[in-house]
Simulated scan of single mutants.
Amino acid sequence: MFIPLYDSNHLRHIKHQYVTIGLIAINVAVYFLTSSPDEYTTQARMLGLGYIPSVAFDKAILPAELTMVPALLTYVTYAFLHNDIFHLGGNMLFLWVFGDNVEDALGYFRYLAFYLLCAIAGALVHGLVTPDSQAPLIGASGAVAGIVTAYLILYPRVKVWVLAFGRIPLRIPAYISLGLWILFQLSMFFLGDAEQISWACHLGGIVAGGLLVLVLRSRDVPLFEHEEEEQPARSADPAPRPAAVADDNTAPWGRR
């Protein structure tokens, strides 16, 4: 639908987005650690660390040789797995562009809790919708969907540079770009085919992000903040964040 490039929403409460950078680093590291030229080995790791609803709800048992962590822990571990480099790149691009400002509004520790809770909510809703599924859910989509929703609630009027349809550069308010993104996720949940993408996981993250940001944000951070006024010409603005390179398919995906 669109590729986010960067925003001009500067940090106000923290010096650096340490947690966002750390989460990106962990996701990238896990991707390369779990990827293997041997497809069987890669699939085994996805089964061992991915979220499988039928296993989580005790409707099926994962063979002992494939079990890597307790089923309860897969509500989190699945969110650090990705199917391919484009799946990883799309999720990390959204996390890079929007995560730092949510981290700024919540603070380091609350932001980390927020991220993990959104991931858990995504897995839970996916499991409730498909409780008999034996396919592993993987990807940071639930957590990223929560971040997108929180950003929209906190900074709806901030201008965001995006590539519409992957080609047309536009600078538009967040309430347009992110609002359309969320509307698309909801539409696909009710109308779409969930065979390859877990729209339910996205929905869980959206709902969790919208609720959690209300209670976890710092007390001095308002909701629905107006866009910052332009700085005077004599004051140099900080350089904008560079665009990350990604394939046209950059929307956060769920199960591939």
Rank of each mutant, 00 (worst) to 15 (best):
F98N: 03
F98C: 03
G99S: 08
G99N: 02
D100K: 15
N101M: 10
L106D: 06
G107S: 11
F109T: 15
L112V: 14
L112Q: 05
A113N: 04
Y115K: 01
L117R: 03
L117W: 04
C118A: 14
C118D: 06
A119Q: 01
A119D: 06
A121K: 03
G122E: 07
A123C: 10
L124P: 01
G127H: 08
G127F: 03
G127R: 01
L128T: 12
L128S: 04
V129R: 06
V129Y: 13
T130I: 13
P131K: 08
P131V: 09
D132F: 14
S133F: 08
S133N: 07
A135V: 15
L137C: 10
G139Y: 04
A140K: 01
G142F: 02
G142H: 04
A143W: 01
A143S: 13
V144K: 09
I147S: 01
I147E: 13
I147A: 07
V148I: 09
Y151D: 00
L154V: 08
Y155Q: 01
Y155L: 02
P156M: 02
P156L: 02
V158W: 02
K159A: 09
K159P: 07
L163Y: 11
L163A: 10
F165W: 15
G166K: 08
G166D: 00
P169Y: 09
L170W: 07
L170F: 03
Y175T: 06
S177Q: 05
S177P: 01
L178H: 02
L178N: 09
W181L: 15
Q185D: 06
Q185R: 15
Q185C: 11
S187G: 15
M188Y: 13
G192T: 11
G192V: 11
D193T: 15
D193W: 07
